[in-house]
Design a protein around this nucleic acid. Structure first.
Lengths: 252, 252, 252, 252
DNA sequence: GATGAATGAGCTTTCATTCAT
DNA sequence: TATGAATGAAAGCTCATTCAT
């Protein structure tokens, strides 16, 4: 389940930003002119170079860290490429050596976050498949782990999810992800019980969307602490009862 | 349940936008209290002047319509005040006679949408209270009506919900709204059954968040049509089973 | 005696200017303290960046020169940042790399003028202290030198003194300057004669204000040439007689 | 002695303002199209109409009062014609019925102030002529009365003197005024003593400029109260000693 | 006359991106 | 390769003034 930009939202971003990042590259934008070397094909929002040398690696890391901090501290709108470079202790020119544009930095950040979430999802999928584990327990673990992940850089994650303009690429990626998880869940649903559900695909989508939304809500707009615990319980309850009701019905 | 900007997110938008819309408007700092006229109190994101003459009313309407169209067509980032004015066939000066800043236009649009949703919520609340109506049926009607409302300007609503930077004011309003609906739902939950639920408040929050997220997903990221119907069924199923399970449990 | 912006006057300038220059710059609110680089602390009206490379130095110089010319030719009101940049043969972006806002350019110009006046004042102070030099002669020399300085860019200096909106900062600086010179003059008065004057502080203020006003008047609103010479004589006369009368009286 | 805009100062005013008020009327400016009735010849900065009816008189008064208050409270830059009209409880259209442009309002205000000062000057001139009154006493009375006048609307007077852009017309008027007073003073100087002064004209100018500058300084930048009194004493001292020294010398 | 809605040139300022050094 | 000065399109917003009603 992709966590960073769920129901998917994004912000206005600078009109500048937007006008430039979202619309076809402004006139002064220059396409990476087939430069060879360690460059990837010039897909717009991907890092420009695969850093080869350790120094380069560090530069890239510094840039991403600086960007993350800026976003977390000041919000997306105040995150400018020049500030990122300054914070990273790198010249703006160098920044553009490693990232073709601002969007690419955000994409990297997003992908980093996703990469962090990936194992959590994987493990939860395995647990869901495990017949020895109660559904509700598996779901609870999923929730708890996702919330843990979000707790590491809560502000960053929130901003990434809510404020950063979504590129076409990011949207497509999300859809693709959802599709993948849905397929996986459908299979699990089929395996876990003998009876067919009316619409396993629909069910999987609902589970995906609900989990995503509730996780995000709990992570980003924390209700008072004592309600929060209850909310987790309730969320888990809702989802597991939902699935089990099916089983019960079909079993009944 | 407020649908327009729920867990909703937004960012700072353009540094322009941010710097101006978020910081206190310095000039307007001293309001001339003696002055009468058709001005509202100078709260930042509220319309500046109440139109007095029919001509003015039309201007305001034209501006809002133009803004809505631009947003729907090009996304928030490409919506500039100058373009709005142009599209509205109105001078930029006129625009600023009625809206103190760009954000105020969005706020108006948002409030318009909210106003449209309000009666739907009201009716659904009444239906939920009605013991003669099955929970699941009440919830299904809620979903259907919300989706109908969202179907009027789907792209506009999506952008409003996902792309538009949320002001402090809007965020506070959302929280307040959620609180209100939660309270309402809690009461309904208590009335509808004899037994107490463990955490009616938590339950109400979960219902609110889930309904909001699923409505939005269904309205804005439409899955293929034949899946869509099933998804509505599933969503309704999930929510009503969730509530009824409680009853069953507590009753059992 | 500081000559550039004495009792000086100015207004808010454009509402633009005011609204922006006077209110705290919202964005710059959080200064990234970690960031090194050639930036000064982000005080509103100070230059933004210290130029590091010769090219940058030239840019700054060109901007200041262009601003000075525009002011002298067209007055402050017609001096716009875009015109300055154009005249300087520099992009508007470059201008804003070195000056955070329009006011900062004026501040620089003012400080430049002040820096030019400083040695004149210093020398005159020394001469006033010198018992071998007649008071009247010392004062005459002060006048002559100040007028010489003002003669370099008379129109610029006039506009700077009369038309340019004074920032809080500038006003405070002026007060501070006056205070400093007054203290200095008070000491000199005490040293130069055995008897105490009734109110050396008041006397010093009067001398400061009168000198400043008369210098400015002579430099900026030149009376016909043959009267001008007489006016200098009279001004010197007035001031020196004023001081000496005291001595005579107290001695008598 | 004209007090309102002495060494002549003006401000930046809005760039808008300036660009429009100082430079030749912007294109949209329309010349009063020979409208007959109670109109004066269309000199730009004079009130447009001589109000005939009492109601009109009140309107004009209300406008001027509103303008004065706005200036005093918020400074010149925040004084806009629309705000003036609003404050005056008059429509912006009406305002432009009585004043051809913003400058005319300021001109009126300035002239009002001058008119108030006029009798003070007249009386002082008579006292200066009066051989029974000591010079120093006459000058002291002049100072005291000028300061009293300035004390009525101190902020308004300061802003009028320091912030308001000076029109060509206002500058010319000032020069003319200075000329007139200088001539008057020259005659008085000649009458009051038998001997000729070296440069009565120069002396008169110096007296005029010094008095003006010191009055303004004392009125607008008030030093601490106990110093203030001493400063008045010193100012009077300086001026009277200056004149009397002449007499003494020529007599000696 | 009075009203007030409308106008629009023009201002300040930003920031992603380029490219000479 | 790294640097950082330079670029400039474009955005939000103001306010003196006009003119239809």
């Amino acid at each position: 389940m992709r966590q960073a930009t769920p129901t998917s939202r994004q912000s206005a971003a600078s009109k500048h930003v937007k006008a430039r990042a979202v619309s076809p590259r402004s006139k002064r934008a220059h396409v990476l002119k087939g430069a060879a070397g360690a460059r990837r094909a010039s897909s717009p929002d991907l890092p420009r170079k695969l850093p080869r040398q350790p120094r380069a690696h560090e530069t890239v890391k510094a840039i991403l860290q600086a960007a993350a901090k800026l976003i977390a501290e000041q919000g997306f709108a105040l995150m400018t490429t020049n500030k990122i470079a300054e914070r990273a202790g790198v010249s703006i020119g160098s920044l553009y050596q490693y990232f073709p544009n601002k969007t690419a930095i955000l994409t990297s950040l997003l992908e980093e976050h996703q990469a962090g979430i990936q194992p959590v999802i994987e493990q939860s999928m395995r647990e869901l498949e495990d017949p020895k584990l109660a559904f509700s327990e598996a779901i609870r673990r999923l929730f708890v782990r996702l919330l843990e992940k979000h707790a590491v850089h809560p502000r960053l994650n929130r901003v990434l999810a809510e404020e950063v303009p979504r590129t076409r690429r990011a949207i497509a990626l999300d859809r693709h992800n959802e599709e993948a998880y849905v397929n996986r869940v459908v299979e699990i649903l089929r395996k876990r019980r003998d009876t067919r559900v009316a619409h396993p695909i629909a069910m999987a989508h609902i589970l995906f969307q609900a989990t995503q939304a509730l996780t995000r809500w709990l992570a980003h707009t924390p209700p008072e602490i004592h309600i929060r615990e209850a909310c987790i319980d309730e969320a888990v309850k809702m989802l597991s009862v939902y699935v089990q009701e099916r089983r019960r019905r079909s079993a009944g």
